[in-house]
């Protein structure tokens, strides 16, 4: 189950979307989240859907992989659909089953809102699927840079994010190791009553906390020894490159927005 999840997962590739600057991708996703709300009728939703599927195509992510990974999300989308169908009570009744009445407006809202939800999820997933976490961090850091004027700790935040990203696999290995060590000492993580299982978390969490603190301490010392003294006076090794594609993609989204306003009912 977890192995198939695609949230926050990066799939290496050479597609157009992979090659884009993380900044343009972040801006596009941000704008898309707003633009989605312009749509209010069949033609506008059709345009949005077409745009999204064009992006999916450009990402070269296999559809089957995307479908498999989003399966749990479909359930959520379906639930949203049901919620709207039953809660909206406007327009003529189109179906009546005993106490259950489905209104036309409910069906309409259900379809639109769940579609909107689905498109949002697809577009944000595309961002993480085609951009490495560190690129996203770099993109955010540069985009948020103006906030430094108001003493917003942009550099520190970005460094924190990148260090967390660096240590996720290490901590996963560590968790697995401690879990096995405690299992060998008679703890059961996969069976037994719920109360016991909750108790079993303590011998896992405490060693994890302690080792994380130790790591943090050692890492801080190592960073200091390597001359780290905050963001000031630092140069940057990783560089972002804004290209023609990025400008083109932004303009394209602009065009889609104009089209949406025209078609809006």
């Amino acid at each position: 189950m977890m192995e198939k999840m695609i949230f926050g997962r990066y799939v290496p590739g050479e597609s157009l979307l992979h090659r884009m600057d993380p900044r343009s991708k972040l801006i596009i996703v941000f704008l898309f989240v707003i633009v989605v709300f312009i749509a209010n009728n069949v033609p506008t939703y059709a345009v949005l859907a077409a745009y999204t599927f064009l992006m999916v195509g450009l990402s070269r992510i296999p559809l089957r992989f995307l479908y498999g990974g989003l399966k749990p999300v479909f359930l959520l989308v379906f639930f949203t659909f049901l919620l709207h169908i039953f809660m909206t009570k406007e327009g003529p009744i189109i179906l009546e089953l005993g106490w259950l009445k489905i209104y036309e407006e409910g069906l309409r809202q259900g379809i639109f809102i769940s579609l909107r939800f689905l498109l949002l999820i697809l577009v944000t997933s595309l961002l993480t699927l085609t951009t490495t976490p560190i690129e996203i961090t770099d993109g955010l850091e540069t985009l948020l840079n103006p906030l430094k004027k108001w003493k917003f700790p942009v550099h520190e935040l970005a460094l924190m994010m990148s260090i967390s990203l660096r240590f996720i696999p290490t901590l996963m290995q560590e968790t697995d190791k401690i879990m096995k060590a405690q299992t060998a000492r008679g703890v059961e993580y996969n069976s037994g009553p719920v109360k016991e299982r909750i108790k079993a978390i303590i011998p896992l969490l405490i060693p994890l906390f302690i080792s994380s603190f130790k790591r943090a301490e050692e890492l801080a010392v190592a960073m200091e020894a390597r001359g780290y003294k905050g963001g000031e006076g630092r140069t940057k090794y990783r560089q972002l490159a804004w290209g023609m594609v990025d400008t083109a993609m932004l303009l394209f989204l602009g065009a889609v927005t104009v089209l949406l306003f025209v078609l809006r009912g």
């Binding site: 560190i134 990148s162 660096r166 290490t170 390597r226 780290y228």
Partner: peptide, 19 residues
């Protein structure tokens, strides 16, 4: 593990230079 700051090898070597 506890002195590897970068997410990749090249980033880690660059860390000191950036500082």
């Amino acid at each position: 593990d506890n002195q590897f700051v970068g997410t990749t090898v090249r980033d880690d070597v660059a860390f000191g230079l950036e500082n």
